[in-house]
Design a binder for these strands. Sequence first.
DNA 1: CTGAAAGCGCTTACAG
DNA 2: CTGAAAGCGCTTACAG
Lengths: 361, 361
Amino acid sequence: MGANVCKTPTLRDVARMAGVSMSTVSRSLNQSDLIPEKTRARIRKIADQIGFEFNSHARSLITRRVGTIGLILPPGYESFGVSFYHATLHNALRSVLESNDFDLIVSFLANRFTGDNNMRRLVRRRKVDGLIIMQPVFEKDMIEFLRSMSMPFVFSHYPPPEGVLPGIDIIYPDNELGGWLAGRHFAELGRKKILCVTPGHGSPWSTPGGSPDPEFSLRLAGFRRGLGESGIRLAREDLLTGALTMNSAYDAVMARRQGLARYDGLFALNDLMAMGAMLALRDLGRKVPQDVAVIGYDDTDLAESMRPSLTTVHQPREELSLATCEHLLELIRLSRGVGAPPSARSIVLAPRLIVRESSSG
Amino acid sequence: MGANVCKTPTLRDVARMAGVSMSTVSRSLNQSDLIPEKTRARIRKIADQIGFEFNSHARSLITRRVGTIGLILPPGYESFGVSFYHATLHNALRSVLESNDFDLIVSFLANRFTGDNNMRRLVRRRKVDGLIIMQPVFEKDMIEFLRSMSMPFVFSHYPPPEGVLPGIDIIYPDNELGGWLAGRHFAELGRKKILCVTPGHGSPWSTPGGSPDPEFSLRLAGFRRGLGESGIRLAREDLLTGALTMNSAYDAVMARRQGLARYDGLFALNDLMAMGAMLALRDLGRKVPQDVAVIGYDDTDLAESMRPSLTTVHQPREELSLATCEHLLELIRLSRGVGAPPSARSIVLAPRLIVRESSSG
DNA sequence: CTGAAAGCGCTTACAG
DNA sequence: CTGAAAGCGCTTACAG
């Protein structure tokens, strides 16, 4: 009366049915070429029939791998502006991991209730094989901890802070170049007087009164350089301060209605602010792009969907995700091997400008 | 020369240092009250010192729990309209799970490369203790499988399809009521002639030529009922077809510019479409809300950020996430116990209308 | 090519 | 209150 269908069949069940030892089943299902193809096929079939899957815990206990990657979310992820952008990043990440049969645990750095460090916990409990870390700030402790645990990790998306920590694997887009592309585009369009909407210190992770977020200050620096090459200057009064949201930019532009007529271009440091600014310009009777050309940053899906559609700097999300995952998977592979650990790399990806209606009048 | 700091200390290490057996350490760290508080504290301290954490695999092998919940994403999640809305849902989910010390694995139902069923795999490999399933379609196979595996699961967010499967735990907002709130609001405003922007069959999971998505058809039905109570009818020609995106709604309204002057209200079945419609109205010289009052659906962050800010039906995201998690955690708890499995519930949450500038002229 | 055996790091009756 | 021992479901030298 042996039931040949049980809730969760084990290797032992398969072995029994196949009339071989557990070792043979294990080897077969793991593609060991010690086992002749014929046997492997037979066992594979039995396993499929009864719906066998390896118990990942038993397996991990020995192999020390789980088949799960941890993604550490940036601070401020709850805020719309951030989550909004990152959601598309995650989709791309998930694709790559999925194609490699890895699962994805998504977590904040710190548990917001207990205050515990989630990342440490995930690592110590061995719930992940590697980490993708999206954090604008690089804590030295954290990095030393990961190294001491031999846990592969890659920082992704945020540019390194000023004093770059040497020897860290990090992949991010070139924000300075993105800004430069926008600046040059205005110059090419022959626009001379540009208004620029920045988040000021309003990004979720900038410390009050601290230095502005490098991500945004780099965009601005590049923008200045791009304009400067054609002799266009950005004065202090040409900078408006929003807060990464649509309404903050709308309000900032409305508040500046005096003297607005002088401007024939507007650059916002992200798409949401660009959209808010466009609404304001329209309400003030200034036509986009005829009177004012507008450029955003990020190339979120909204940019194309906006009317007029928004010219913007495209963040290479797919490439970023792909490169991040591939690099991490490579590190994981190497960490199992015997070779020397590879030297760390930082990979910088070039953004590109997507020209749409808001700047092609 | 025994190092008292090792990479990953085990129970054995703690036991050795404390001069007790592994059993005692295990019990202490698991809050067994067999062990006197004093001993517990001593052992806790040693464990903390050397950075001990349970190896989750060894533990799971015996206890059959992992401390991880699986979230199954809806089809079409890659599309912006969907991911955009769900991102905020996830944030809320993550909070609740985090406060219960559960990790979250996020996955699509099917592996888009191998075609394998990710959910089955996660369950069979025992990588999750329970599942939150966001799927507009309920496959019978899937449900039987989960039951046969005694895997706790809760369907969340999508209303059940027509022929409701009895005895499934499911939590979702009342879309019909949401539509009704919008209808009644127009009636109260004294608006008589309403244009309605729907996704048609354009939602990501509706089969071509199949029946429209229940989520949206319910909103529309409720809306009709709300208007009907004040004698307002919606003719076939009052329905526009977009595709859940801003530009689709923009284009639909623009294409309908003839006869647009008759309308004094516009309802879009989600916020993105409402925003697109508002842009079109403005471009056609119709003032919001003076000429046309506009209502959206979802209450995404963009609604408040829009100018004029958007009146919309608020999806009870926080309540939904909270209720889903709490219910799932309860099911998990019960599945360990001896009591009879609880009877399944469906929980319907009431949305509410958020009145903003787009309808308060 | 194949199997018996040890062991991964825990938990939990069972016996004191 | 405490410990020795069995066992969760795998993998992998080791011996044939």
